[in-house]
Amino acid sequence: MDTNLLREVLARWASGVVVVATMTDSGRRHGMTASSFSAVALDPPLISICLTTTSTTQRLIEQSDIFTVSILGHDHEPIGRRFAGMDKSGTTGRFGQERWDTAQTGAPVLADAVGWLDCRVAARHEAGDHTIILGTVQAAATPRSAEPLIYHARTFCKLRNAMMQGVIQ
Rank of each mutant, 00 (worst) to 15 (best):
D65R: 15
I66T: 09
F67T: 01
F67G: 00
F67P: 01
F67E: 00
T68S: 00
T68R: 01
T68G: 02
V69I: 15
V69R: 03
V69D: 01
S70T: 15
S70A: 08
S70R: 10
I71K: 03
I71D: 00
G73I: 15
G73M: 07
H74A: 12
D75Y: 06
D75E: 05
D75L: 14
H76Q: 14
H76L: 13
H76F: 12
E77P: 04
E77Q: 13
P78C: 07
P78V: 15
P78G: 08
I79D: 01
I79H: 04
I79K: 03
G80T: 14
G80R: 11
G80E: 05
G80V: 13
G80S: 06
R81M: 12
R81I: 10
R81K: 15
R81E: 11
R82M: 09
R82H: 10
R82T: 12
F83V: 14
A84M: 11
A84L: 13
A84K: 11
A84H: 05
G85V: 15
G85H: 08
G85M: 15
G85R: 10
G85C: 08
M86V: 09
M86P: 00
D87H: 09
D87W: 12
D87F: 11
K88A: 04
K88G: 03
K88N: 02
S89M: 07
S89W: 11
S89R: 12
S89G: 04
G90F: 11
T91F: 07
T91A: 05
T91W: 04
T92Y: 08
T92I: 10
T92M: 05
G93H: 10
G93T: 14
R94V: 10
R94S: 05
R94T: 10
F95N: 10
F95M: 05
F95C: 05
Q97K: 13
Q97R: 13
E98S: 06
E98N: 06
E98M: 09
R99A: 09
R99L: 10
W100H: 04
D101N: 11
D101F: 11
T102N: 05
T102L: 07
T102A: 04
T102R: 09
T102E: 09
A103T: 09
A103P: 03
Q104W: 11
Q104R: 15
T105I: 08
A107L: 10
A107M: 07
A107I: 13
A107R: 06
P108A: 04
V109L: 04
V109F: 10
V109Y: 08
V109M: 03
A111G: 04
A111M: 11
D112I: 11
D112K: 12
V114S: 03
V114E: 05
V114R: 11
G115P: 10
G115C: 12
G115R: 13
G115M: 13
G115S: 14
W116P: 01
L117V: 11
L117S: 02
D118A: 08
C119I: 01
C119G: 00
R120Y: 02
A122I: 01
A122E: 09
A122M: 03
A123D: 06
A123L: 02
R124E: 01
R124M: 00
H125A: 04
E126H: 00
E126L: 00
A127C: 07
A127D: 02
A127S: 09
A127W: 02
G128F: 06
G128V: 05
